[in-house]
């Protein structure tokens, strides 16, 4: 398999490490002024840490170009055919090119 890194160009998959489904969102960090978190946060984390769809078809996945530019990438891949339809950098990759005013 070959993955077109948006920074480096097309590279063989040995340069990349697979993480998994890019869909689950990690629950946000919270303030712990009272010393404890909110109720229901364990369920949210249970979903995030353990529950995954077993997708047959198009799936967005995280891949790490560790044998290259060390970018985390979001790869749109068909799990049936291994066809890759898009590769994008993760949100914080290449952040220096983002305008300073965009900082939240």
């Amino acid at each position: 398999m070959r993955i077109a890194c948006p920074f480096c160009g097309e590279r063989e998959n040995g340069e990349f490490t697979y993480l998994g489904d890019a869909k689950p969102q990690r629950p946000a960090m919270v303030a712990l002024d009272a010393g404890v978190g909110a109720s229901g946060e364990q369920e949210a984390f249970y979903d995030y840490v353990y529950l995954r769809d077993n997708v047959a078809g198009e799936m967005s996945e995280y891949w790490y170009h560790g044998g290259g530019c060390r970018s985390w990438l979001v790869v749109q891949r068909n799990t049936m055919t291994h066809e890759i339809s898009s590769v994008k950098a993760a949100a914080g990759t290449g952040a220096a090119a983002v305008k300073a005013s965009a900082r939240s």
């Binding site: 480096c8 590279r11 040995g14 340069e15 044998g67 290259g68 060390r70």
Partner: peptide, 10 residues
């Protein structure tokens, strides 16, 4: 230039 891997080494 290329940032790449040789013998699994960056």
């Amino acid at each position: 230039a290329a940032a790449t891997a040789i013998d699994h080494t960056a």
